[in-house]
Design a protein around this nucleic acid. Structure first.
Length: 220
DNA sequence: GAATAGATTGTCT
DNA sequence: GACAATCTATTCT
């Protein structure tokens, strides 16, 4: 869809080791585009979080686009603007965090211009070595393959929470999104938005085909 | 593998 | 007071 990811070279293989110094943060222009384009191109990019506990990173393999105010599945549906979703209305490249069911955090990337309440929900990442810190945070062995296969799980593994609300992915030394590679991208309706009327059916979930970390198994 | 229930709390009506 | 862009354990088949 653009030249920001996978220009046709290496496909489908995450690096076997993570070298933070080799990671190139995506420019603001990446986020300052229509949310469906950013969502599609976000597949394969690498989330990196550096904290006092250490570094943790994952390759994005599943996202969903939310496009208020017309999209009834979005928190910004019908132009609703509250303290919680304020970040959705702000500049592209910033982070929107919210709490689900009182227990799980969700990590979102704000896209489009200021005043366009659009965002990309990151639903799953493929964890990149070293896995030990992420496994500790999740309280399970990495071999189980369930470290980061869901919105709440990846936040727990990467150490993301409400303290990252509004962070600028283009300027934060702590939290960044970097260029990566991806395999073939599939699309499907979004997950768990039954309340959204006719918007339920829109194929606004994007995922890497065949990747074991995709949270809800697609039909293909 | 699929279905179910319970957890748990900030946010909005 | 209701509910949520979910996760886990448990109980089936």
């Amino acid at each position: 869809m653009s030249d920001h990811t996978c220009p046709g070279g290496a496909r489908g293989h995450a690096p076997t080791t993570l070298d933070p110094d080799m990671l190139v943060p995506l420019p603001r222009a990446f986020y300052d585009r229509p949310v469906l384009e950013v969502a599609a191109d976000a597949i394969g990019t690498i989330v990196v979080h550096r904290s006092a506990e250490g570094i943790a990173a994952g390759r994005i393999v599943e996202v969903e686009a939310y496009r208020g105010p017309e999209d009834l599945a979005a928190h910004s549906a019908e132009g609703k603007r509250t303290e919680r979703n304020e970040a959705m209305w702000g500049p592209p490249g910033h982070v929107y965090m919210f709490l689900l069911y009182g227990v799980n955090w969700a990590f979102n990337i704000v896209t489009g211009s200021v005043g366009e309440p659009h965002a990309v929900l990151v639903r799953a990442v493929e964890p990149l070595p070293p896995l030990q810190l992420m496994a500790e945070r999740r309280g399970m062995a990495p071999e189980r393959g369930e470290l980061t296969n869901g919105p709440g799980k990846l936040c727990a593994a990467l150490g993301l929470d409400g303290s990252h609300y509004g962070a600028d992915l283009c300027a934060s030394p702590e939290l960044q999104l970097a260029l990566g590679h991806h395999d073939e991208v599939g699309r499907s309706p979004r997950i768990n938005i039954d309340y959204a009327g006719s918007w339920v059916a829109k194929p606004w979930r994007f995922y890497e085909r065949g990747n074991r970390y995709v949270s809800v198994k697609p039909r293909d």
